[in-house]
Amino acid sequence: MPELPDVEGFRRVLESCARGRVVRRVEVRDTGVLHGVSARQLRDALEGRRFTRTERRGKWLLARTGGPTLLLHFGMTGRLLRAHPDDPVEAHDRVLVTVSRDRQLRYRDQRKLQGLWLAHDESEVVRVLGRLGPDATAVGREDFEAALSSHRGSVKTVLTDQTVLAGLGNLLADEILWRAGLSPTSRADGLGEADRRSLYTHMRRTLRSAIPAGRVPPRNTWLTGHRDDPDAACPRCGSPLRRSHVGGRGTVWCPRCQ
Rank of each mutant, 00 (worst) to 15 (best):
R187D: 05
L191N: 09
L132C: 07
L223S: 10
D135A: 09
P218Q: 00
V164A: 07
T157H: 02
L168N: 10
G133A: 11
V164N: 01
G133K: 13
T160W: 01
P184N: 03
S239K: 03
G225E: 03
R215N: 06
R249I: 02
N220H: 12
P240W: 06
H202C: 04
T201K: 04
E122Y: 11
R249Q: 07
T160D: 02
I211D: 13
G167D: 09
E175F: 03
P184S: 03
E175N: 08
G181Y: 04
R196W: 08
L129H: 06
A136S: 06
E142P: 01
G190P: 02
R242Y: 14
V155A: 12
L118Q: 04
G169M: 09
E145A: 15
R242F: 07
P230C: 07
H202P: 00
D231I: 02
A173K: 10
R208D: 11
R196F: 10
R127S: 12
V139E: 07
L191V: 13
D195R: 12
H120T: 05
K112G: 07
R108P: 00
C237S: 08
D174Y: 09
D135N: 15
L223W: 03
R215V: 05
V155C: 06
R197F: 00
S239L: 05
W178I: 02
G192D: 15
G192H: 02
G181F: 06
R249P: 05
P218C: 00
Y200I: 01
T137P: 00
K112P: 10
D121K: 09
D231H: 14
A194S: 14
A138W: 09
P212V: 13
A147T: 15
V155H: 08
L159M: 15
L207N: 12
N220F: 04
R141N: 01
V216G: 01
A119V: 13
G153Y: 04
D231F: 14
T221I: 10
G167V: 05
P240H: 03
V128K: 10
G248W: 01
L129D: 09
W178L: 01
H226R: 15
D229R: 06
L177G: 04
F144C: 08
V125K: 13
E193G: 02
G247D: 15
A138F: 08
R108T: 08
P230A: 12
P218A: 03
R205N: 10
G225V: 03
L223M: 04
V139Q: 06
E145V: 07
N170H: 07
F144S: 06
T206L: 04
R141M: 07
A188R: 04
L177M: 10
T157A: 15
E193P: 14
A188K: 06
A210M: 03
V128M: 05
G192K: 04
P235F: 06
A173G: 04
V139G: 02
R141A: 09
P134F: 08
H245D: 11
P235T: 02
I176Q: 11
R127T: 10
Q110I: 13
S239V: 03
R196L: 10
G153A: 14
G250I: 07
A232C: 09
G181P: 14
I211V: 15
R204W: 03
